[in-house]
Simulated assay, not measured.
Amino acid sequence: MSQKSKSMIVRFKILQTALNEFANYSYEKSSINRICTDGNISKGVMYHHFKDKDELYLLCVRYCYDTMLDYYKSKLKDNDDWREEIKNFLDIRYHFFRENPLLQKIFFNTLLKMPDHLKGEIKKITKSLDELNYQFSMKILKKIKIRHGLKPEEIIFLLDAVQNMLNEKFYGKAQKSEEIEEISQEYDRTAEKWIDIMLYGILER
């Protein structure tokens, strides 16, 4: 086996152990020592491949978002009924998290417990998935007969404002609890409710 192949195997082993660590402990409470112990990896080997916890954490976040983006691209499909398209979009996210529970925890740990000093780097990593969400929202808005005088960009701005509000609300919850999976499920339920309100309003139909 070549040295390059051996190095790739070691990096993959470190990644798998780190994914479990960051999923269950978030960035702040995670430990390089625990990753080394759980993965039976010496510190010398660890620091040969990664200079510090930041680099390893960002690799895990990138793996999470890249995997999620590829999953969306493989599952998204056009539908003449925009309601079915929205349902399908939400179902894709639901099934991705059910199939990848560790990545679900990393996603919400990143969203709700993001380390301040890495916000710039994380924003670069999440850009592609954010763009996919934006393009999907614009696509749906072009299919919907929106109220006269409203522009799709204005609705997107309102959706972003609602999401920021939810992020702030659940950020507070995440700081007080380690049950990130329960919080993420509540987050999804609340987000779907707000999407429904945004589309249909608050008046009895």
Rank of each mutant, 00 (worst) to 15 (best):
E204G: 00
H48F: 07
Y57N: 00
I106F: 03
L59I: 06
K87R: 13
I180W: 02
P152E: 05
N20S: 10
I14T: 01
N20G: 03
H48D: 04
V61D: 04
G120F: 09
D196Y: 08
L111D: 04
H148A: 12
G44V: 03
T67R: 12
K119I: 03
N167L: 04
D54R: 11
Y187N: 10
I183A: 07
G39W: 00
F136I: 02
R205E: 01
K143Q: 14
Q135M: 09
K105S: 08
I92A: 00
T17V: 07
C36M: 05
F170W: 01
L132H: 10
S184W: 12
K105R: 09
K151T: 11
L203T: 11
N88I: 02
S5W: 02
L103K: 05
K75M: 12
M8A: 10
T190K: 11
R83C: 14
K29P: 04
D54E: 13
R93Y: 06
F157S: 14
K105H: 02
I106T: 07
S137R: 09
E178K: 03
K51S: 12
D66V: 09
G172H: 13
Q3G: 10
E168A: 15
K151L: 15
K75I: 00
M165T: 14
D91W: 03
I195F: 09
N20W: 14
N20A: 14
E84F: 05
M68P: 05
L59F: 05
R83A: 09
D38V: 03
S31D: 08
N109H: 01
I202S: 15
L150K: 09
K105L: 02
I92L: 03
E99F: 04
N88Q: 12
S184I: 00
E181F: 09
Q175W: 03
K169Q: 10
E181A: 10
T17L: 04
D52A: 01
N33V: 10
K4T: 15
L166W: 01
S177P: 03
N164Q: 12
Y71K: 03
G39Y: 00
F170I: 05
D70S: 07
I14D: 06
T126D: 11
Y57V: 00
I146S: 11
L150W: 04
L59S: 06
W82N: 07
G201N: 07
